[in-house]
Design a protein around this nucleic acid. Structure first.
Lengths: 203, 203
DNA sequence: ATACAATGTGACTATAGATTCATATGAATG
DNA sequence: CATTCATATGAATCTATAGTCACATTGTAT
């Protein structure tokens, strides 16, 4: 956690530091990211940085917390409160939608997340509990859908939860690296959900 | 490309270097990987390394070429030769199967590939053409399946090709990080294909 | 106004790691 | 044997960066 001095800072300076950090971590892996680049861009002295943070990792963890917070803002809060009122595929659609909106509006945070995904050690240190929560959430969703008779009883819930997570990544990836797939977001989400629902086999 | 001196080396020394490099690159990202660790493990002098390779990237590219070559060995060659004789889902099953067998037997190469996936710049420099080939291959497969009437005509081929690639990653990931999902490989592949074919909706 | 605390500063230190280079070794050639 | 060529070596160089520290400035309470 950043030191108190950091939270005592005038808002604009604190924000400059956060902005600079997001820029740097979005472009480079944790190890490659340079404290110097951050202090330069934020126009603070190197020494000041260490008044605010224990070290580079301390700042990084803080950025991840910010990203997680922002991400949560994007999921439909009404939906989360009144899950019973939504069907499984409606819920899934809302979730994917929020993921896409988030990626569109915070591409740098998505980039940081992607990076983190590939650094196992850091990932578990920084993100472990969040990740588990996310899997558990999908599993609960699937179990509920199954109980309500919306889902094929033959599917394996654990496996399906991983696949739904993967689909979410795939979706974010399409939107994030724009131009790769050339459809508007809604159309992508709908086509994707169609495949999740029905598979690709002719019937 | 490594220098001639490298290819002139006695087999056992050359292999020691490759082994050490695979070990190091499997554990650390390209940037984090240390030439020193490789020369130490291979028991060659630091200077010798630069007799064999232009630089660290030169070796890395070579390792990727080796991995790609090994990966290709694992796909059923009979299948590749006689595609017409296989149905779409049979072909897909064979492909996934080869992916899983490869991951089981060469976990370090898989780890290197995973790492690479997350370094856009390096990825395109080292792997770009391979990746495009892989997408194109799935697209062709889907087009053929569509033409043969095995697939739902409503699905978007480009999107589906990305999803099939994602499924492949998911599969490798399950097998690779063993214990995460607790089913034997065949069962995972079959359950996964079931979802690809039919979706998860109750019918 | 004075003193004490909190914050700011950037030159300095420490470390790690890639790459180079002068020199050594040894095998092949004439 | 002397010379040349290919290869081996590790100390030295170079570069990049994280993190520290002694001192400077600012803010605040009495």
């Amino acid at each position: 956690m950043p030191k108190d001095t950091f939270f005592n800072l005038p808002d604009d300076k604190r924000e400059r530091i956060i902005e600079a950090a997001i820029d740097e971590f979005a472009q480079r892996s944790f190890h490659d990211a340079r404290v110097t680049a951050i202090t330069n861009q934020a126009e603070i002295a190197k020494g000041s940085f260490y008044q605010y943070f224990e070290d580079k990792k301390d700042l990084f963890k803080h950025i991840i917390e910010i990203a997680v917070g922002k991400k949560i803002e994007y999921v439909n809060q009404d939906m989360m409160q009144n899950m019973q009122d939504y069907g499984f595929f409606q819920l899934l659609r809302e979730l994917y939608l929020s993921g896409v909106r988030f990626a569109k509006e915070h591409p740098r945070l998505v980039a940081i997340g992607m990076q983190l995904l590939s650094n196992q050690e850091l990932y578990y240190e920084v993100f472990g509990t969040h990740a588990e929560k996310s899997y558990a959430f999908y599993e609960d969703l699937l179990r509920k859908g199954m109980a309500d008779g919306e889902l094929d009883p033959a599917i394996d819930i654990v496996l399906a939860s991983r696949l739904l997570t993967m689909f979410n990544y795939a979706l974010v990836d399409f939107v994030y690296e724009d131009g790769k797939v050339d459809l508007d977001d809604m159309a992508i989400i709908d086509k994707m959900l169609y495949i999740v629902e029905n598979g690709i086999k002719r019937r």
